[in-house]
C-alpha cells in the first residue's frame, strides 16, 4: 500500500518509528506492505514513487529538524503534493486546529478529490464538519479512518463501531483530556492552577500553548466524534456548550465529602456540553493523573466504561497502524477473518 505522510511532529515521528519496528510483523500477519511515497513536514517535502526509507527520513528529521537536503526533496507542498502523488492512502498527522481545521481539512479534501483513502489523527476537521466528511467519503466509495483522533491509547472509536454495534447508546459521559485531568488531580493535592499547569508542561502532557486543552476545545472535539459515532448525532463543535477549567477553584469541602472535580464531556438528548463537574470519587470517571475515561450508556446493556492512557505519540501511532490494517482488510477479500 502506497502512503503519503503529512506531518512530522511527535505523532508523525512515532508513526515512522512504529512502522520501522512493526513492518516485518505487518507483512507476515496481515500481508500489509506499507510504502512511503511522499512525506512532508511544515517546511519541506520528499517524494519517491519507488518508496522512501522511513529510517532515513526519521534520522534526517531528528538531526536537522527538517527534510531539506534529502536526495528526493521536491518543491511541491501540501495540497499540491497530495494531488500530484499517486498513492492509495493519505496519513494525516498535522496538528489540530479547532477554528479552521487547517491544514488538515484541505489535505483530506484533496485526497477525497483524487480518490485516496484517508487515515487521520487530526481532530480539527472532525470537530468542524465530521458528518459532511463521512458522507462525502461514503459517496465516493473511499474509506476515512480516524481512530487516532480520540483515545489513541484506548480504542474508544473501535469499541463504539465494533462492540456496541446494534445497540442504542442513550448518553456518553467522559473525561477526554489527559492534560486537564492531570491539572485537576494536582490541584486536588493542593497545587495552584498555575503550578499544576507548569508541572504538566514540564512532564510533556501540556503543550506550550495549552489553551485548546484547558479551554475544553480538545474535549469537545473528541465528544463530537464519539457522539456522532455512537449516538448517530450530526454534531459539530459549534453545537457543544463549552466551559474549560480556567479559573476553576477546588473547594476543600468537596474533597472532604469524598467528591472530585473533573472536566466532564457529555452528550445526551438534551444536548452536548463540556464543563467542570463535581462527581463522586467512586464514580469510574473520577480517574486521576493523565488518564482518560469514557462511559457509554446503552439502552439494553447499560453502562460501559473504558479507562486508559491519554494519547501520546506512541499510542496515536499505534492507532494509525490499526487503521492501516483495517483499511488493508476492508480493501481486500482475503484476511478479513483475522
Amino acid at each position: 500500500m502506497r502512503m503519503i505522510l503529512m506531518g512530522l511532529g511527535v505523532v508523525g515521528r512515532s508513526f515512522l518509528r512504529t512502522l520501522i519496528e512493526k513492518s516485518p510483523e505487518l507483512r507476515l500477519k496481515y500481508g500489509l506492505n506499507p510504502t512511503l511515497v511522499a512525506v512532508a513536514d511544515s517546511s519541506s517535502a520528499v517524494q519517491d514513487e519507488r518508496g522512501l526509507d522511513p529510517k532515513e527520513i526519521l534520522d534526517l528529521k531528528v538531526r536537522k529538524g527538517s527534510l531539506s537536503g534529502h536526495a528526493r526533496e521536491v518543491g511541491m507542498r501540501g495540497v499540491e503534493l497530495i494531488r500530484g502523488v499517486d498513492a492509495e492512502v493519505l496519513i494525516d498527522v498535522t496538528p489540530s486546529n479547532f477554528k479552521t481545521g487547517e491544514p488538515s481539512l484541505s489535505y483530506i479534501k484533496a485526497a477525497l478529490n483524487t480518490g485516496k483513502h484517508v487515515i487521520t489523527a487530526s481532530k480539527g476537521p472532525f470537530a468542524l464538519e465530521m458528518p459532511a466528511l463521512i458522507e462525502m467519503f461514503q459517496e465516493s466509495g473511499l474509506h476515512l479512518l480516524f481512530s487516532g483522533t480520540v483515545g489513541g491509547g484506548v480504542p474508544f472509536v473501535r469499541f463504539v463501531r465494533k462492540c456496541l454495534i446494534g445497540e442504542r447508546v442513550l448518553a456518553i459521559k467522559g473525561v477526554l483530556n489527559g492534560t486537564t485531568n492531570y491539572i485537576l488531580t494536582r490541584m486536588e493535592a493542593g497545587l495552584s492552577f498555575e503550578s499544576a499547569l507548569r508541572e504538566a508542561q514540564e512532564l510533556g502532557y501540556a503543550e506550550a500553548d495549552p489553551s485548546n486543552d484547558i479551554d475544553g476545545l480538545d474535549s469537545a472535539a473528541k465528544l463530537v466524534i464519539l457522539s456522532n459515532l455512537a449516538m448517530e448525532t450530526d454534531l459539530t463543535i459549534r453545537d457543544v456548550e463549552i466551559k474549560g477549567i480556567r479559573g476553576v477553584e477546588i473547594d476543600r469541602k468537596i474533597l472532604e465529602e469524598g467528591k472530585s472535580v473533573r472536566l466532564i464531556a457529555s452528550s445526551e438528548e438534551s444536548g452536548a456540553r463540556v464543563r467542570p463537574e463535581i462527581i463522586e470519587r467512586t464514580d469510574p470517571l473520577a480517574v486521576s493523573g493523565a488518564l482518560n475515561a469514557v462511559s457509554f450508556f446503552a439502552e439494553s446493556s447499560g453502562r460501559h466504561t473504558l479507562i486508559g492512557k491519554g494519547a501520546g505519540g506512541d499510542e496515536t501511532a499505534m492507532a494509525l497502524i490499526r487503521d492501516l490494517v483495517e483499511l488493508r482488510m476492508s480493501l481486500s477479500e482475503v484476511g478479513a477473518c483475522l
Partner: peptide, 8 residues
C-alpha cells in the same frame, strides 16, 4: 448530500 449540505 444532506449531511454535508446542512453543515455547510
Amino acid at each position: 448530500l444532506i449531511k454535508a449540505t446542512r453543515i455547510y
